[in-house]
Design a protein around this nucleic acid. Structure first.
Length: 567
DNA sequence: GCCGTTTTCGGCCCGACTGTTTTCAGTCG
């Protein structure tokens, strides 16, 4: 059982206890444990074997005992009992924005509703609006959110899909007769969510491959089976589709499998114009040596990296040899948005810096929350000052790495910042973000962000649209005006690399670039593990056609600091 | 539930917004 799975059980346990009406602090302890386990830097199993479980801060006697039960028996009695008491549908209902345990419980009691489907039906039949505490607006909101959820059904976040894909790839590669395995489809294009995991396998024995994968512990059952492929359902909901081909056509199959459809069709058009000469050349080659580059070369195109294959002008650009030189992970020299134990992170500054350094970074900004964000233990001005003193001391001990002072300052509902200018002025990296009053109307929210950008102390706008993938839409915002303002003021916009945000999105980041706005690709990590999520942000940057010069944290430390102080 | 230069119980902990109300409970970050 992996860390994420154990963490997920405690997460659900917390929700279940909330439905049961348990005491707030007990629920919080489970939530906290879930977060800690998900962010733990070693397999929980190793800590368990080594008897170190209750050495982990936040894991006490009781939760350690439950982890022990999980790892010993594969099950948790308390969890199972609660699941029987509260149907899984109720858990889905309380994840809807605006609905919590109290309202879900009331709706269940009054109408016997225990699933999203039943809730949607009741909303359509206008049966919710007369319940105590609910009205027409809530009813509309509920229906809208359920429909939004259903429209995304089956699409997994990229990190989950990539993790499962990597595991299955490793497994398949060990099978006899399997020469190569690669993930294709939207996963290879690094799209923010993935419908199913496409794996292309080079093997002359499809049956063995299919039967072997069917027995993998991640797979719950087989959905379709053909001669040269099969589709499976995983236990995590997302489907896996296998395409099994002879080794000599592997590259071609992977190329076609990667898509997108629109990109592929456009290339097909080019092939047809070539009157089969290219296709003939393709078939005439020694196929074993063929690389994807050759396919593009045959069409007189520059090589188009998978991230660009969306038919958003990349084929035209490749024809004219003007594809961008896309930013690479190796170009990233630091992370400018990281949380420590001073606010709501679970790793301390030295641990974070150590990990950042190990990645080859030159710098990292510690940007803990500002005073008004109580739930995240936002820092008082005194604490902030103290933290910056600590950082200055830590910097004295090292020469080849620099910890930058920072803050993630709240943009308060009326647009003012949650920290006085004279304090902000002294801070290396000021990230300003919205964490409250998400339901403001478009005009108010736009003015709020504009007001923050106007402040010359603000360097970066954090997760600019506030969206959470598969959970909630961004706040109402006139993004065009925000982009205009960012371009005018010289404000940097963030690409938040967290796989559940990826905010700005690829499309919006590309618009930002077109307006001459600089971007920062940051992890917003709250633990050591999440510092590793930078590749997801870089992928968004690549999908946005960004080059190294568009991304401020590709600059060396000295140049960056100068750049930040220019306003 | 966890934690403890507070040693075994008591503290942890929060204000703002929302939609429903007409004074507030529930939700949220």
């Amino acid at each position: 059982m992996q860390n994420e799975e154990i963490a997920w059980i405690f997460h659900e346990l917390a929700d279940l206890l909330e439905l049961k009406g348990e005491e707030y602090f007990k629920i919080r302890a489970y939530r906290n444990a879930s977060r800690i386990l998900a962010g733990l830097d070693e397999p929980v199993k190793d800590a368990w074997k080594g008897g170190r479980l209750n050495k982990i801060p936040g894991i006490g006697k009781n939760i350690a005992a439950k982890i022990n039960e999980l790892l010993t028996t594969g099950n948790l009695k308390k969890y199972q009992e609660l699941l029987e008491e509260f149907p899984p549908g109720l858990l889905a209902i309380i994840t809807l924005p605006g609905l919590g345990p109290k309202k879900a419980g009331m709706i269940r009691e009054k109408l016997g509703i225990t699933s999203l489907e039943e809730l949607a039906a009741a909303a359509r039949e206008k049966r919710l609006r007369n319940l105590p505490g609910l009205g027409v607006r809530t009813e509309d909101e509920i229906l809208r959110n359920i429909e939004l959820r259903q429209s995304q059904a089956g699409r997994a976040l990229l990190d989950l899909a990539r993790n499962i894909a990597a595991e299955l790839k490793g497994y398949l590669e060990l099978l006899p007769g399997v020469a190569r395995v690669e993930a294709g489809g939207s996963l290879r294009r690094w799209k923010e969510t993935v419908g199913d995991i496409d794996l292309v396998v080079a093997s002359d024995d499809p049956n063995t491959v299919i039967d072997s994968l069917a027995g993998h512990y991640r797979i719950s059952h087989i959905l379709e089976k053909g001669y040269d492929g099969a589709k499976f359902q995983t236990k995590w909901g997302i489907a896996v589709e296998l395409e099994i081909v002879p080794e000599e056509v592997f590259t071609l199959a992977l190329f076609r499998n990667t898509g997108s459809h629109a990109h592929f069709e456009k290339l097909q058009g080019l092939f047809e114009k070539k009157e089969n000469s290219a296709a003939a050349a393709l078939l005439g080659r020694n196929r074993g040596e063929m690389a994807e580059q050759d396919i593009y070369a045959m069409l007189d195109l520059q090589y188009i990296p998978p991230e660009l294959r969306e038919d958003r002008g990349e084929v035209e650009a490749a024809l004219e040899k003007r594809l961008p030189d896309l930013v690479k992970l190796e170009a990233i020299k630091g992370d400018l948005h990281v949380h420590s134990t001073w606010s709501d992170g679970v790793a301390d500054i030295e641990q974070l810096a150590g990990r950042a350094k190990a990645k080859g970074y030159q710098y990292m900004a510690v940007t803990d929350h500002s005073r008004s964000l109580h739930i995240a233990r936002g820092l008082s001005l005194d604490k902030l000052h103290e933290q910056h003193e600590v950082i200055r001391e830590l910097n004295k001990k090292q020469e080849d790495f620099r910890i930058l002072t920072g803050i993630e300052v709240d943009i308060l509902p009326k647009g003012e910042l949650d920290c006085p200018d004279e304090v902000l002025k002294e801070i290396d990296v000021v990230v300003a973000s919205v964490h409250s009053a998400f339901k403001q109307d478009r005009e108010t929210m736009t003015a709020r962000l504009l007001s923050a950008m106007e402040n010359r102390n603000v360097d970066i706008i954090g997760h600019p649209t506030g969206r959470l993938l598969n959970q909630r839409e961004g706040y109402a915002l006139d993004l065009e005006r925000v982009l205009e303002a960012a371009a005018g003021y010289g404000t940097i916009l963030e690409i938040n690399a967290s796989p559940n945000r990826l905010d700005l999105s690829d499309v919006n980041a590309r618009r930002a670039k077109e307006k001459g706005i600089k971007l920062a690709i940051n992890t917003d990590a709250h633990d050591l593990k999440r510092l590793d999520e930078m590749p997801y942000g870089v992928a968004v940057g690549r999908r946005a056609w960004l080059e190294e010069e568009d991304v401020v944290n590709t600059m060396p430390a000295g140049k960056l600091l100068k750049y930040l102080r220019r306003r």
